[in-house]
Amino acid sequence: MGDGSLGRIAALVRQDCRLLVRDPAPLIIRTVMPLLIMSFMQPLFRAALRADDVRDANGAEQSVPGMAVMFLFFLVNVVGFAMFREHGWNTWDRLRVSPARPFELVTGRLVVPLVVALVQLTVFFGAGGTLFGLRVRGSYLALAVVGVPLAACVVMVGMALVALCRSIAQLSVIANLLALLFAGLGGALTPQSVLPDWVRPLAPGVPSYWAMRGFSTVILDGGGMGAVLLPAGVLCAFTAGFTVLTLVFFRTGHRKLSWS
């Protein structure tokens, strides 16, 4: 650091922003689609929650955080694309020859997806309140304390997959599978209470479980900061784990195959 490192990271971030501005449609769709799905799922979740003895539930208590968590993990693809397209454009070698260190290249490419994830969470919960009547019994700050490490975890899953996958086709199929698997196991697709017995012991093994547990604690049980420290901490641990994976397996010299 201190030798222009921050400047180079800023340059990479600006470049990502320019590319995002050139083609914002995928991101807009990624943000609007979950809102539609939330509205489809709401009646189902209302019934499930009422059956679960949450008497005044309107369904948004599950549909909003559930779909938010599920669709956030689809952003893993965005991190993957951002890295793999450099290989497709042959600009990766340019970056390697530039003064930027590997650490800067990776960090620079994480910033925009991280901001996108945070914006998406904000939109999801904001729309949840205004469109779907989501009532948060606990503190919004506590929601953020869960949301920020969740977003960090998502982008680090993306970078770990970049380090591990040889082609964007591999990354994309794994990312989509993981998003659905995490959502199913973690109780984002159904309330945790109705998960089948065999799934329950597995659930804590996925980050979605902890995100849903944190969000539900705040939304349904009125939990505050203290109540979400454990889920937030576990999400941080997941993030650290994926960071370690990235550090161990990421090599700037690895050849990667982009589309085509």
């Binding site: 470049q15 454009w89 340019r94 020859v97 930027a100």
Partner: peptide, 28 residues
């Protein structure tokens, strides 16, 4: 050191100016 590799390496969606500026910014 400056390298222009054999294979074309540019950012196709961006303008010429943006491509050049990025390299300038990356160089500090």
């Amino acid at each position: 050191l400056g390298l222009a590799p054999q294979e074309l390496g540019v950012y196709p969606p961006l303008t010429v100016r943006q491509n050049l500026r990025f390299c300038a910014e990356l160089a500090g």
